[in-house]
Design a protein around this nucleic acid. Structure first.
Lengths: 113, 113
DNA sequence: GAGATAGTTAGCAGTATGGCTAAGCATGAT
DNA sequence: ATCATGCTTAGCCATACTGCTAACTATCTC
């Protein structure tokens, strides 16, 4: 279980919550303040804060505080490992198909045609 | 929050656990029995069963029982919604860039050049 | 400086998660 | 019929998650 693995767990876990996904979608439109993010969710500020810190720890958002206002922005590249992992599964799967093909070939060859 | 949303939550949640991901990787190689899946994890059977049911409810694996042996297989297509959702975020983000471009254009036009 | 605004921290409650053991089926082999 | 195998269920434990309120800090704005 490499750190790589931990990262994936953090990412997937962060993305597993509908509230957090809707926050991300909102941030994909444009950066926003904490209060602006809380509005649409109907949740209290501390609750939203918690979601934001989960997202930030996963690297999915970046935040900066200017005066008393914290601005949040999406970090799209952060989702890349997710895509990569899925692609890896697919290539393992495809390799399996290749092996099955090879196996079938062998069987046919053994049969003499 | 559509059903679509629930599906995504189930998917992401299922993928958020390293044990479940390693089970999926093993199944990408080839289908396996429950006991075969338990081996590499070092976990007890009931624990593995629970992971398997999470994976199955998310649609990520399919299982069938033949005699006393249950065989599990990966369902690669099940990951498609994940990829789709990520792509959607990216296109929202790209649309945002377009809007910013348009905004800059407008400002320049207003200035007379 | 008083008061509004924006965020933060601390801590509680209910539920879910991830591990286990113990015990209970079936099914296959002898 | 008996025993081993493979899975399944029930239920316990510790921890983590998601929501909340209450109280606190820090920054504008008058």
């Amino acid at each position: 279980m490499a750190k790589h693995d931990t990262d994936l767990s953090l990412l997937f876990h962060a993305l597993a919550d509908p509230t957090r996904r809707s926050i991300l979608t909102q941030l994909a439109e444009q950066p926003a303040r904490v209060t602006d993010l809380a509005g649409p969710t109907g949740l209290r500020l501390p609750t939203v804060m918690r979601h934001l810190s989960v997202l930030e720890e996963a690297g999915l958002i970046a935040t900066a505080k200017d005066g008393r206002v914290r601005t949040c922005a999406i970090v799209l590249e952060a989702m890349e490992p997710v895509r990569t992992w899925i692609d890896e599964q697919r290539s393992i799967w495809e390799a399996r198909l290749d092996r099955l093909d090879a196996f079938v070939m062998d069987v046919m060859k053994e049969r003499g045609s």
